[in-house]
Design a binder for these strands. Structure first.
Lengths: 197, 197
DNA sequence: GTAGTATGTGAGCGAACATTCACTCATGGT
DNA sequence: ACCATGAGTGAATGTTCGCTCACATACTAC
């Protein structure tokens, strides 16, 4: 038995990866990806540095996987949601509620996607499911059918996300405790007020 | 004369600092602060690393000065603008146009303030002029005078910025060439539509 | 001239960092 | 009882990067 040997508490492998994901996500949001070291993550998670590399080939891959997996999942859900509704109004309603629910379910994950969007965006290929593409398409379709006035095209497109995202952002930066879902009705109403000019 | 000596083209010191500022700002926006090295900045600016340290004591100070100087200047201008107007509607109008003008005047600087807000926010002290504080106050005052309905308080506060910022953001991320100022009328109308429910 | 000051330079330093790898050992199959 | 497997470990390694400094050059004052 070597002098370096220690007790090794084996845990469920599934649990270890989840532990890494949760810890990394939290630290990435708190400090940013670049300011978070592998040592930060591993010590906060109570694992060894090498353990992290059993699950991810690099810190960059870890950050990217946490982003892309959830980014595309969100886009796919949004797309499926849109297929269930016909009118623009119903789609906007569903979209905003989807954002609100997602925020309330996991505010840290939501913050991560929001805050790291710019940094990760260069790796997003056009073939990846993308919330922005989904939203552009349905705004365009709604406008083609005359459901919203064409003159407000650009404002309208930015607005749908603008309303809900900025309430969310003010919560990420602020200390508000209230859930976003509780505000969904007001947000839907506000967005629609802008669009049906 | 040492074997290492080279021609040294002395330039206007004022120009050198501006060169550093412009180059650093551009790279910070393109790659993020953490991913931009001193070597990146100096080589892109065509100066030596040491030269940068003649003008800034550290990379952190450089990033912070580029942020805080413009962040507070923007807040001060916004505050002065508000003092010139009485009604909430006039203030919102002026605010949105101010944002649009600022964006058009220097899109890179605007992007920097937007993208690095989260990272730099921890250094913003309460006594510093702050756009958010200015906006909170005038929304609160407008609501106290009954100019907008109290029930939409949270939405309203997020909206004023939400509308204009998200059009701006979609331009930062997108490839749109059109100026923001050209859209100012539509944005003002959209914001007001939400607020006067 | 020469002394003094301001500015520019880039090789080199050291600390921080991501990543590797030889090793340990709990577990499950035979 | 024995072995095979692979998750877990953390000291060691090589690299990156912010920053320093000895020196070079230019400008100013005398």
């Amino acid at each position: 038995m070597s002098e370096h040997s220690l007790m090794v508490a084996m845990r469920d492998p599934k649990y270890t990866k989840e532990l890494i994901d949760e810890t990394a996500l939290r630290l990435f949001v708190e400090k940013g990806i670049a300011e978070t070291t592998i040592r930060d993550i591993s010590s906060a998670a109570g694992i060894a540095e090498g353990t992290l590399y059993r699950h991810y080939v690099s810190k960059e891959h870890l950050a990217w996987e946490l982003f892309s997996k959830n980014f595309t999942a969100f886009a796919v859900e949004l797309d499926q949601l849109h297929r269930k509704h016909d009118t623009l109004k119903a789609k906007i309603d569903a979209t905003i509620r989807h954002y609100c629910t997602f925020f309330d379910k996991d505010p840290i994950l939501f913050s991560y996607l929001l805050l790291e969007l710019h940094g990760q965006l260069r790796k997003v290929t056009p073939d990846m499911p993308n919330p922005v593409t989904v939203l552009r398409r349905f705004i365009g379709e709604g406008m083609a059918r005359g459901e919203i006035p064409r003159k407000d095209r650009e404002i309208a497109a930015a607005m749908v996300l603008g309303v809900v995202l900025h309430v969310a952002v003010s919560k990420v930066y602020g200390r508000t405790k209230q859930s976003l879902t509780a505000l969904a009705d007001s947000i839907v109403a506000a967005a629609w007020r802008v669009l049906e000019a």
